[in-house]
């Protein structure tokens, strides 16, 4: 199947009040691939990923110029429907953040706020999503338990299941493993590689090995600029920019 650009970012600038956080970023993101954003803390990688589903709208004083097109439609256009954008471009956060509800109610959340009341439909969809996040077999008998009782890696996969139920097309992941130990991280990475078959995935990571392990393309960011964006193999073996090389060889970051 021919892959195509799922997201096209053109000359994106983002300001928090007077602070210019993203400088003229342009990049195309391929569908059914994993694109990693790497760079030192404060480089703007989280800001960039949060501007892809307009989560930055929630921060007072944030302002955007340029465009982000998802399937050709500018999500910053005046007529864009923010809720619809966020359903299409879903997000997994840094810390596992289930609601203080049962496992079932957590997963069903997205459908319920969309007005779905049909019980058997909710049950089917919850099962599907939990299966897709590899949680069904271990949790199917305890769906009524509070999600907060689960270990962290299961909580994070639950958050992924909670996202999958609203059938997004893009999954943004903002350092999804930074709160997890190496074994739990490995499980999540395996899941991410599986999800790639059906979704366009953008992952922000602090962990360069992780970017090298899972991603197809990598973008290196520094102080609000996208320094280099290329095939992951190339970024990690023959980076074109000296600053990228210094970062991936651990000279700073």
């Amino acid at each position: 199947m021919a892959t195509r650009n799922k997201i096209e970012i053109q000359r994106l600038n983002l300001y928090y009040g007077a602070f210019h956080a993203l400088h003229d970023i342009s990049m195309d993101i391929l569908d059914r691939h994993i694109t990693a954003l790497i760079g030192p803390s404060g480089c703007g990688k989280s800001t960039l990923v949060r501007s892809l589903n307009r989560m930055n709208d929630l921060i007072s004083g944030s302002r955007v110029t340029g465009s982000v097109r998802v399937d050709g439609e500018d999500i910053y256009a005046a007529k864009a429907d923010v809720e619809k954008v966020r359903k299409k471009v879903g997000m997994v956060f840094q810390r596992p953040n289930p609601f203080p509800l049962s496992i079932f109610d957590n997963v069903a959340y997205g459908l319920r706020v969309a007005g779905v009341k049909n019980k058997s439909m909710l049950q089917d969809k919850v099962e599907q999503s939990l299966r897709a996040a590899w949680l069904w077999d271990s949790l199917k008998d305890q769906l009524h338990l509070s999600a907060l009782t689960l270990p962290l890696d299961q909580q994070q996969r639950l958050c992924i299941a909670r996202l999958l139920i609203i059938e997004p097309e893009v999954i943004l992941m903002d350092e999804p493993c930074s709160a997890l130990d190496p074994i739990a991280t490995a499980k999540i990475e395996e899941l991410i590689l599986e999800l790639k078959k059906n979704y366009c995935i953008v992952i922000v990571t602090h962990n360069m090995q992780q970017a090298a392990r899972v991603s197809d393309y990598s973008g290196y960011m520094l102080l609000g600029d996208l320094i280099e964006y290329d095939d992951t193999k190339k970024i990690f073996t023959h980076p074109a920019d000296q600053r990228t090389e210094e970062y991936i060889t651990g000279r700073y970051g």
Binding site: K87, M91, N97, Y109, G110, R162, I166
Partner: peptide, 25 residues
């Protein structure tokens, strides 16, 4: 705040978020 963030990220409107997440908690 993270509860609100998650709720918005799942496509919930502000009012739905208040109903479903903010008020119960």
């Amino acid at each position: 705040t993270s509860y609100r963030e998650v709720s918005f990220s799942l496509g919930a409107t502000r009012w739905r978020t208040i109903q479903r997440v903010v008020l119960p908690n």
